[in-house]
Amino acid sequence: MLQVIREQADLVHLDFFIDSIKGFLEKAGASEQAVFDIILTAEEILVNVMSYAYPEDKKGFVEVSCEMAEIDGTKKLKFTFTDEGKFFDMLDRDAPDLSAPIEDRGIGGLGIHLVKTLMDEVSYLRKDNQNILTVLKNI
């Protein structure tokens, strides 16, 4: 089961991506909690890409590939986020200081902390001038 969603990396398209991913998760029969965790993850990643990957006047694309696969005997939902924006490894940041006031924590750091905690695997690859972020959720 595979679905690819591709649009300009602009916040006006955020709802389109989220609705499409929700549609995929419904077809995949994901649990309510899995849907919640994945939608939150997708939103944090997409908002990051849409806000920072490209210059404001030159927005490129962002592509989300949604897959359900069996890996090592476990059913997993796999989402790959690809853009051609500037090099940006979201995972390469220190964990936020959770004891600091929330507004003093780095922007984006909290979102990535949520993504890393909610997903079972998260990985980043820079290849052919593309940022490729993959997340896996066991179901």
């Binding site: 919640f36 939608i39 939150l40 939103e43 908002v47 006031p101 929330i102 507004e103 909290l110 949520l114």
Partner: peptide, 16 residues
């Protein structure tokens, strides 16, 4: 039914 990290920031800001 759903919140993103931006809602956590809004709560933090309001609480102050």
């Amino acid at each position: 039914e759903y919140i993103a990290s931006s809602f956590l920031r809004l709560c933090g800001k309001a609480s102050h």
